[in-house]
Amino acid sequence: MTQQTLGADRPQPTELTAERAEKNGIRPSPLSRRQFLGLAALVGGVGAFSSQALNVVKDSLVSAAAQARRVLPTFTADANSFGKLVGQDGQPLSSPDAAPTPQPAGRHRWVMVIDLARCDGCRMCTEACNTMHKVPEGQEWIRVFKMQDPRTNATYWFPKPCFQCDNSPCTKVCPVSATYKREDGVVLIDQDRCIGCRYCMAACPYSSRFFTWGEPVQTAAERAQAYDVELNTPHRRGVAEKCLFCPSLLRKGELPACAASCPMGAIYAGDELEDIVTNGRGESAKFSQLILDGSGYRYLDELGTKPRVWYLPPRGRQYAPPQPDQGHTGHG
């Protein structure tokens, strides 16, 4: 503990730290939809202000920006991807191809909220996920980090799935459209197409992507199953893998494995359009209200990735704060 007070501003090399206090509830979370609506209103007002020359110039710039946002979707996926595609602003585009997988029934936009005040670092989410997806050895699609902010002495647990970013850096860099963003918000990987260059891993600032380096251990029956792009099974060697939000479960009205297994009810999953999220204890909440009341934030939001996972800061923790790492603790 003295180590932390001495540590003042500089994180100890052996500690897992996140110097992002400003994220922890100080800044209100920017909502991409709201931003978009605001922008749309601005664009709509172009005509009204057109008499003023200066405003015309200004607004045409704004509208050009909005236009640019609309034509950018090729960055997230392209005509060769299947499933419905979305633009950079999260708005759906018309599907260019016949989709090989069934489209989700109805309109959804999956979202996750993780209450850091509730997570006690038991790692049951990781185990449930590993079991359900038969995650290849060494990978943890949802990983629990021990975080520490030296300035406030806050130590807390930080479960990190894939954030399914709306402006996903990983899909931008894929040379073969093997990974893409779908209309329901998830980022999927077509492992029949992936060439294993690992550029998506380089692009992801959250280290959320994994790679199957060797032959994955699977039974013959597992191996014989038909490939499911929403589960990444059966696993194969030499391709990228990651958390996919279990969209097949969500569509059936069930929770992803991690959320369902969390005894603390820390992980909420649900639909942003319906504005409802539910945790493993069966507690439901209005998504917008939850992140508004709880000062929800998105991790490293300033990178512009627009994650679909919100965090509630670890205020009023419902568990004993974890001991700071001394370099030899259990899983981080």
Binding site: V173, C197, V239
Partner: peptide, 25 residues
């Protein structure tokens, strides 16, 4: 780059599905 690839057997995908937005292309 081919040696670095996890799936060199799929290198043709770069030509079949190449995305000009990717720096690799």
């Amino acid at each position: 780059i081919l040696i670095d690839m996890g799936r060199p057997d799929r290198v043709q995908n770069v030509l079949l599905y190449g995305r000009i937005q990717s720096a690799i292309l």
